[in-house]
Design a protein around this nucleic acid. Structure first.
Lengths: 144, 144
DNA sequence: CCATTATTAAACCGATCGGTTTAATATAGC
DNA sequence: GCTATATTAAACCGATCGGTTTAATAATGG
C-alpha cells in the first residue's frame, strides 16, 4: 500500500516546510549549523521568553530537523539532515522541471516568432530576482 | 544597510515555505508543472469549495510561486520559478553544510579509532572553527 | 437582455500558531 | 538538604489558517 507512504511523506513535508516558514526557527538552524547547542543557547539571541524559544525547538524536533539529547539537566540539540534532504529533493525536482519547461517554452516562442535570429537583445540584466514580465518575453539566459 | 534586504528575504522565505507547507498547494504546483491551468482546473481535483481552492491559489500567488494572467473571465496560472529557486538555494546551502559537517565528524571519529592522536575532539569541543556563515548571520530582531 | 460561467469578496467558524505568564520538574553543586 | 539552573507544562490570548456559505463581480454567448 503506497498511499500510506505517500500520506506519510506528505505529512512530513507539511511539518518540515512549516518548520522552515518561521524566521526564528531558520535562525536556530543556522546557529546549529555551526555545531551542537543547548536549548538555552539557541534561545539566547531572541527577545522572547525561554518557553517560547523552547516551543520553536520542539517544532524543529517534531519536524525531524534536529535531534535532542538530554544530558543531565541540559538538552543538547544537533542538526539532523535527513528531513532537510527530503524537502530539498522535493524542491529540486520541481525547480529543475520548471526550468526545463520554461526553457522549452522560450525556445518554442523564439522559433515561432523569429523568421530570423534576432540574436538576443539587451538581456544582460545582472539580477534576475523576481523577474516580472509578460509571458514569453525573454530575459533570462540561464542554461544547465 | 543591507538589513532591509535581509528582512525582505526573510519575509519571502516565510511566505514561500508557508505556501509549500500545505499538501493541497503542493499538489497544485505539481499540476502546474505540467502546464498552465485555469483556477477552476486547479480546483477540480479537490473535494473542497471553489472559494477555498481560490484562496490556496492566492497564497501561492502572494508567495510569488505562480503568476496569474486574467484573460477574459478566466484566470490563467503559470509557475514562476524564481521564488522556488530562492527557497532551493536556502535549503541547498544548509544541506551541503550539514553534510560537510557530518562528513567531518565521521572522519574525526575514524581518526580517533586509528592510532593517530585526536586531531579534533569528536563531541565535547565547542568547535566554532571555520564556521562559514550563510546569507546574513548578524541578524536578529525579527518581524512582529 | 438574460442566463450561464469563472472567479473573487465577505462574513463566519473551529483549529492552530506564536507569544505570554505562572508553575512544575529534574539535575547540579555547595 | 537546599538552592540555583535548565527546561518543559499548562493555561491563556490575539492573530492567522483552512474551510464553509452566501453574495458580488465580470465576461461569454444565445
Amino acid at each position: 500500500m503506497q498511499s500510506t507512504r505517500d500520506a506519510a511523506q506528505a505529512a512530513t513535508l507539511d511539518q518540515v516546510f512549516h518548520a522552515l516558514s518561521d524566521g526564528t526557527r531558520r535562525a536556530m538552524l543556522r546557529e546549529l549549523a555551526a555545531g551542537e547547542r543547548k536549548v538555552g543557547e539557541l534561545a539566547a539571541p531572541f527577545s522572547m521568553s525561554l518557553a517560547a524559544a523552547s516551543k520553536h525547538v520542539r517544532v524543529l524536533e517534531r519536524a525531524g530537523l534536529l535531534q535532542r539529547e538530554v544530558r543531565g539537566r541540559v538538552h543538547i540539540c544537533r542538526l539532523q539532515p535527513a528531513r532537510l534532504k527530503t524537502a530539498g529533493q522535493w524542491l529540486r525536482f520541481y525547480e529543475q522541471f520548471w526550468t526545463e519547461r520554461l526553457d522549452a517554452l522560450e525556445a518554442a516562442l523564439q522559433a515561432e516568432a523569429s523568421p530570423q535570429p534576432d540574436t538576443d537583445g539587451p538581456a544582460e540584466s545582472p539580477d534576475d530576482t523576481a523577474a516580472k514580465q509578460p509571458p514569453g518575453k525573454k530575459n533570462r539566459g540561464h542554461r544547465h
